[in-house]
Nucleic acid binder design. Structure first.
Lengths: 230, 230
DNA sequence: ACAATAGTGTCTATCAGACAATATCCT
DNA sequence: AGGATATTGTCTGATAGACACTATTGT
């Protein structure tokens, strides 16, 4: 902290915005994308719910702050949220000048624990969360974050069969297809889907059982099925 | 500024990082991508050059700060830089905790004015600027910004014939192809290139002249040739 | 005529999308 | 046997890449 500029001032002598980190944590439940929301303490007529967020501390990275927000606000751990976009409207937060670095992640439902109770399914175009109180607007500019987050998830799953392991350890092609349909928000044709993903999956040699109809082959993700989102 | 939290503090009572804005301003010169760099005041052994940047002021948007950086550091105006990525390594700047929001833009050479003198051609994989002193490393983490900026430019020009008007008002297909080859860093086949862009260009009905060989048709950009980069 | 560049015909390979037939299980 | 699901064959249309041929200018 010894640095001083031409007029003898340090960086702290200039007014600076606060930096917030907000996280759109997505999952798939009941055949649809859903996002973890968080009920705000005070009474806010429109905008009772927001995405989990926090302020960036002076000595942590953005990823750490995002994980801390998830831990403290919705008790979820073990994620690795990715940067999405910086929201910088000077009036976006009435508590002062705050720029918000939006993050995303997409995880299997069973990793959410208690946060399952705070899931809002995402519907429509543009994609909007359906909140527990029936509204579809989040506080601040968080609707915009959800919109970009869904786009991100669709791009991610457009590139690889199951980069986030949403289909579990072993799965049939139909199960994987349901995951893709949930994320994409539209039905897919089974034969087209099959041919698109088959070369990037590992065959376990086992068959599903206990269900009606011809048993399906069980597949596993390739270890390399982890593309970056760049 | 009237807001106070549970312990009676405002946002300003908590330590906050500074927010820097750095801009990779790209253009095409001599058949290659080039980036505008800026010589730093003090004597820095490695890292004499950096991208133009500044600190975000309390009352401006990121885009405004990016434009201000270009105006004050390299005297370029009229750009509309786009967000690229947030660099948040706590040690990235030795003057204190600074997070850097990287921006990009890509403009025709003739809009750079004086800044033409500060152009560093970009070469190799990963793409690195070749600086006036022969080095290829920029200060801070600005090499990483250039790398992402080049990726961004390639994606942009992969989607439309000339979204940034680099080929001028009217151009032949060969001229446009040279622009694409400069951005992509590799040679293209003329017939493939032709078929890919032709449907998205307007024919002026005029022909080039004064050159050897068969005169080429002159084309114009479509007004809609401005895709967003999302 | 010749060099040089513009523009086109055509072949191949690949891929998504769709329809429909066949295969294999469970009850 | 019959219902249900899995798997494969095949056709269509679109597209990228490549090769080679034809067309039109200036010198």
């Amino acid at each position: 902290m010894a640095w001083r500029d031409g007029s003898g001032r340090t960086l702290e002598d200039y007014p600076r915005p606060s930096v917030a980190v907000d996280v759109a944590l997505l999952t798939v439940r009941d055949g649809a994308l859903a996002v973890v929301v968080h009920e705000r303490a005070a009474d806010h007529a429109a905008g009772r719910y927001s995405l989990p967020g926090t302020f960036l501390r002076i000595d942590e990275t953005l990823a750490e702050a995002a994980q801390r927000a998830l831990r403290s606000k919705v008790r979820v751990t073990g994620q690795r949220p990715e940067q999405l976009y910086v929201f910088d409207d000077p009036t976006r937060d009435d508590r002062g000048r705050v720029i918000g670095v939006a993050h995303v992640d997409l995880v299997p439902l069973d990793r959410l624990g208690d946060a399952t109770a705070l899931l809002a399914p995402v519907q429509g175009t543009p994609p909007r969360p359906v909140l527990p109180d029936g509204h579809t607007r989040l506080a601040f500019d968080h609707d915009g974050i959800v919109e970009r987050a869904v786009e991100w998830a669709r791009t991610l799953y457009g590139r690889a069969p199951d980069p986030r392991g949403l289909a579990g350890a072993e799965f049939t092609l139909l199960e994987l297809q349901r995951v893709h349909e949930a994320i994409g928000g539209r039905a897919l044709q089974k034969d087209t889907f099959r041919r698109r993903v088959l070369d990037d999956l590992d065959d376990t040699g086992q068959l599903s059982s206990g269900t009606v109809g011809k048993p399906a082959r069980l597949y596993r993700r390739r270890p390399t099925d982890q593309p970056d989102t760049r």
